[in-house]
Design a binder for these strands. Structure first.
Lengths: 126, 126
DNA sequence: TGGGGTACTTACCAATTCGTAAGTGTTGAG
DNA sequence: CTCAACACTTACGAATTGGTAAGTACCCCA
């Protein structure tokens, strides 16, 4: 089933913002769409390694309902659906930038603190 | 039980940052501690209306393990435990500020869009 | 003697979130 | 004729997350 529509008002701005961003892939979806401008479903799928079709559609629908993502269906065959950010979605991405910077900094700290830690490389995207 | 230690590396900074902030009350805890500097357990409890003791301790322990919160126990009776932000925690709060501003803006939009909407007032804290 | 305040912990349960796998219907390529 | 690609939807179940309630141990105040 889809996401519960959140009962009760928000307590603060962070609360409201985290409500639309939390979801296993939403941050990445935002990033992909901001990077490429327009993406088709299968392109997003390939861009987010490990995502399932179910979660991708579910997240995209929620983000559309939240006014972050625009969904354009072209009545063709095979079907073509294009996703892009709305103006509101782009402002969210901008607001997330400092948090992303904080995150990469944190990753850096972790990797220098921990000695026993030689796994896969991290792509330092914002 | 407590939180699973997250398998696999982070994909990007947002990913890493959201990992430490997501949790029903963590944003509010950060805000409370930043606002007051130092808070005792019961003070935090009173500051977060609706939180249970279990969730509060659980979140505080996780945030301590993540290096965001400092916990000082004073060997007195009755017990006194003081919580405050570390430097790292304060930088996180700074990085969250734009997101908070985005959130209040979003709340404002919502409330002017929706007509049938006359419930409790929202405290517009950052 | 009884109640409230301090800071928790534990057990159990409910709700939410995520993953896996399969099915849908059409088209073009081999 | 068969299979892949497109963009999904549905059913089921596991994992994670959060809520409720009770118990702990000690003290102060009335």
């Amino acid at each position: 089933m889809t996401k519960a529509p959140r009962t009760g008002p928000y307590i603060c701005g962070i609360d409201a913002a985290l409500d639309v961003v939390s979801g296993k892939w939403k941050g990445l979806i935002l990033w992909e769409l901001d990077e490429h401008g327009v993406r088709r479903f299968a392109e997003l799928r390939r861009g987010l390694p490990g995502v399932s079709e179910k979660m991708l559609t579910q997240h995209l629908r929620e983000m559309e309902a939240d006014g972050l993502v625009r969904r354009e269906v072209h009545a063709e065959v095979p079907p073509r659906v294009e996703y892009s950010l709305t103006a509101h979605g782009r402002t969210l991405n901008a607001a997330l930038a400092p948090l992303g910077a904080w995150g990469v900094d944190r990753i850096r700290r972790e990797r220098s603190d921990l000695v026993e830690h030689r796994d896969a490389a991290v792509l330092p995207r914002p």
